[in-house]
Design a protein around this nucleic acid. Structure first.
Lengths: 196, 196, 196, 196
DNA sequence: CATGAATGAGACTTCATTCAT
DNA sequence: TATGAATGAAGTCTCATTCAT
């Protein structure tokens, strides 16, 4: 009984990981269900016991990868706070820098996430604890230093959009600047947007 | 002789326009060559006399639409300058606002362009006069008020990325803020990034 | 021990009834084993402990339904005889009319039976008491009024074929005449075939 | 141009004939599109230029075979009339006998037609000249000898149903009588139904 | 006896591209 | 140049049946 459940969970993991490899290497349209199940070592019919279709698996893969990274980014802030007395602005930069450095090493993942943003997926993501917590923490800090919570949300949205787009262009499209060159101006922009 | 060339040009135009309608209405993957040639009123074989394949036509469509809009945005600045004595910052905002308002009315086009950005296409685009001129003008103004031309380019890149991403999220994905609500904070951010 | 046997019988009954509902509502090809076992409330593997395959169950369902109806039709004749002094011809019509009226109310069942006639099934059916008795009674009466028993069998076959086909066309295919309109001519034909 | 049309017609014929062979030999469900196109010597995609799907081809095959046979049956009557002075009843029997003898030699075709009767197909069939003519001729003769045209139609329907069902049972299911044994009683029944 | 997760062959269909006319 | 019939590989998804538990 317990073994069966474990087995199912393992199969789903194998599916997700096989799909991730193939999606990032060959692109989603060039990845066939056949390829995924072959790599995962399961039968084609089994695939449909776990996923509605290919795009359901795309969502599952992205959701899992995204929450993992956000989780780690928040740990990075926590570690930073333990080490020294930090302020709000620094935390935002640390958070962004964690993501940026991660994507620098894994540009395929950034491409995958960025190309498959959708309202549906975003809604699912926010129901995950990690994302909600990150947003709430940001707003709390922002109001603590005298800001309005509505303005906080809007600036957060602008910063996330900006950092995301710059990373995508610099890291994935490799244009027009290498990410390390543009980084100082990018963080300056974050700062300029946040400070009163 | 001249008539033949005109005829050729007309066929290409019909192809581009038919494709634009279908790409924006139904999405690129859901648009078949069959649909395009049927709408354009030409035979399927003829398609391959004008385009290498479907994605070649996608590029042609986007390139044409993009240059048209940039052209118009620059006319908007020119008209603004005629009317009153304007400064650099205002021109940037006018330029951005022209694009933003255009995409607000034509969100399908924004989706089409944004989802199909690629390094290849970007390079092609910059060889078009209009885009190059816009960039050059921006840098000239920026250095005139005492800035460094390299920094100018970087900030331009960040601003374009930021405005593009916010527009895409707000207009196309319709999340998390309506574009008109976020506009003041967006333009404030542009200003904060540009002023010393 | 006894309980186990009852349990087995109950499961088979549940299978038959679930299948009947689904076969008549959705058609045999559109009914999946999955649907049947789900409706019957048993596990998929269990299905194969009771039936060789789907078509084995089809036969079982039809056989049961057919014998039930024939049984009832014979009761109808018996009741008619009790009430008044009836002759052979009238009994044939009463028998046919019972079936006809039954199928008028349950056209799905008629469709199911008619579309799945087969020599195999027919042979199985004749081993059931009810059908054999009906045939025997018909022949006895026919010879009693001076007919040949071989001719009796042949005319019975022709009449059954005729009534069955007219019912199927009129009730199931609903063409070209409503069954109530054609009934007088149909029974006239039965009479004309039977009388010397 | 003309050659293209001829080619298309030839391909459709090859499809119909390949399908007919396979449908009658292996049954419709066991015949795959793959088998049909392989036998017809065309590519799978080409199939879908000629038929919506497999069941569209089933209809086309049956329709063609049916009209061919009816056509020939009517010729048989015409020939009979030329030879001798024939009456209405004889013509009906000649017509029926032509069909019966044909199906005796081609029982697979009878099975195919009978199993795929449907209202839709019947309507299509009646728009073909041959069938309509046969029905009209029957009614004309019937009224000429003093019958009512409405009654004529009803009796025709009953006779067609009866002969069809008896043929199907005797020839295809091979039960319970060989067709040649039952023939005299069958034609006697036709006569008894028709004569006043 | 009972279960239901796993299997995998195979069904149907699409559509970018070619090529004979 | 222009045509459009023909191609066939590639794709998704289904479902009867098995078998380890």
């Amino acid at each position: 009984m317990k073994k069966v459940l474990e087995n199912k969970s393992k199969k789903m993991t194998r599916l997700r990981e096989a799909a991730y490899e193939l999606f990032t290497s060959n692109g989603i349209p060039n990845t066939r269900i056949d390829d995924i199940v072959k790599k995962a070592g399961i039968a084609k019919g089994t695939f449909y016991l776990y996923c509605k279709d290919k795009y359901d698996l795309v969502d599952k893969v992205i959701l899992r990868k995204t929450t993992d990274i956000i989780n780690n980014a928040m740990k990075a802030i926590a570690e930073n706070q333990n080490a020294q007395d930090t302020d709000f602005l620094e935390n935002v930069i640390v958070f962004a820098d964690y993501l940026l450095e991660h994507f620098k090493r894994d540009k395929k993942l950034l491409a995958l996430i960025y190309k498959n943003l959708s309202w549906d997926l975003y809604e699912k993501a926010l129901t995950f604890e990690e994302l909600g917590t990150a947003e709430k923490t940001f707003i709390e800090h922002f109001t603590k230093i005298g800001g309005d919570s509505e303005v906080a949300k809007q600036r957060l949205f602008i910063i996330v959009s900006m950092v995301g787009a710059v990373c995508y262009n610099s890291i994935v499209l490799e244009m027009p600047y290498p990410i390390d060159l543009i980084k100082p101006e990018l963080y300056r922009s974050v700062t300029r947007i946040l400070v009163q």
